[in-house]
Design a protein around this nucleic acid. Structure first.
Lengths: 155, 155
DNA sequence: TAACTAACATCGTATCACGACATATATCAA
DNA sequence: TTGATATATGTCGTGATACGATGTTAGTTA
């Protein structure tokens, strides 16, 4: 039905992106302080948090991160170089490369994940609100007290 | 508190990132098909969807996108080069550079925004679910019915 | 006026993503 | 079994983007 877009529609879309960027920026900074590049952190989380029925292959990780397989290869190269992840060949299918975190990788990921969970508990509600606003295609829920979620730069 | 992390905790964090990446990947592809780089689209949306009380300055856009101001400068350079955005000097404060979309920029952004709104309406619920799961630090959404016992307004 | 701050710009470098192409292994068809 | 084809991973070169360090111009304050 393609209703036309109002100023409020653009605002709710932009606010959603702002909230997403705030979360991602938090994550990027946390990763870097932990000595990892942001994408490398994402690869580790994808390996550790894979659905139980999936094997931790290069291609599977690429799909979870929505990147091309060769981008995943490069990320894994750096992670393996840093001692965070190790490769082994698949047993059934020798084309496959199966990935696992090293103890060093497990430790860093655990700390980052705790930190992220805490951030989500505090920043999550604003994200859900922005998402709902953008989904209904109008900024109706910001007529409530949440208008002052307007945020300044974090230190 | 810092409850230890279970396998389900890692899964819910990873699922959230997967959902976010799915949305962002959709957006990246849409931008590129429209002839824009993803970040350049974000700059245009930030300009158009700025809160009413804010001026569309370089620094303001940088803050909304959570990037350094000089990264915003480079993005605006490319957008201006492509004829999507124009700069003008601030009237009060001549250090400021105020940004505005050109008609060409307005047109592309409008089309992309309609497309994004439609995507959000279909993909949004999964995102909200993943977000809620990760916020409570457990993957409980498989039990959707019970999850909604403590709900707020559902759209 | 001088010192200081703020807003924007430039430069060099690193990460990351992609397309195009390459290699190894598996599978299928006859 | 062989040859064709598909699948999984890897390599190479390029471009967009982000950052830190530094520079320039305009406003502010002592």
């Amino acid at each position: 039905m393609h209703r036309a877009l109002t100023a409020a529609d653009f605002q709710s879309l932009a606010d959603l992106r702002h909230q997403i960027r705030r979360f991602l920026h938090f994550s990027e900074q946390a990763s870097r302080r932990a000595g990892l590049e942001p994408r490398q952190h994402q690869v580790m989380l994808a390996i550790k948090g894979l659905p139980a029925n999936a094997r931790p292959r290069i291609g599977e990780i690429a799909q979870r991160l929505q990147i091309q397989h060769h981008s995943a290869v490069e990320l894994v190269n750096r992670l393996a170089g840093g001692g965070y992840v190790r490769r082994r060949r698949g047993g059934q299918d020798r084309r496959e490369v199966l990935l696992a975190l090293t103890p060093k990788g497990e430790k860093v990921l655990r700390e980052l994940s705790l930190y992220h969970r805490a951030e989500l508990q505090s920043a999550g509600p604003a994200l859900v609100r922005a998402l709902r606003d953008a989904m209904r295609g109008m900024a109706s829920s910001r007529t409530q007290q949440t208008t002052f979620t307007k945020n300044r730069r974090t230190a």
